[in-house]
Amino acid sequence: MNYLWAFTVGGAICVAGQLLIDLTKLTPARILVIFVVSGVVLSAVGIWDKVVDFAGAGATVPIIGFGHTLAKGVEEAVAQDGFTGIFTGGLTACSCGVCASLIAGFIAAVFTRSKSQS
């Protein structure tokens, strides 16, 4: 059952993104920023935790989940370390995804070259 919810909720979030692309003048970069910031806000007000509970990866894999990770990170860090947690929380929590992308980017750049399209 959780597979179905992951698929449906994740797909629905992408549809929301597609509607923003097709029906507004927002560029993809702006849409991603809107999504990640809304991820932080939705987590801060406690909504996204509930979505994650029943949709699992459907709520964490879309870029809103990136915002959720940042918000969770800062919550934990502020609770544990106080003031310095404000600075360390977000980046520490998202470091895994960012670092993985960075490594992947570097390896890909070393071993492949850009390809023409058709």
């Binding site: 992951a6 698929f7 994740g10 992408c14 699992g56 990866a57 964490t60 879309p62």
Partner: peptide, 11 residues
């Protein structure tokens, strides 16, 4: 369909 599939893979 594609977005959902990535999330399903994640799950």
């Amino acid at each position: 369909l594609v977005g959902g599939s990535f999330c399903l893979t994640g799950e």
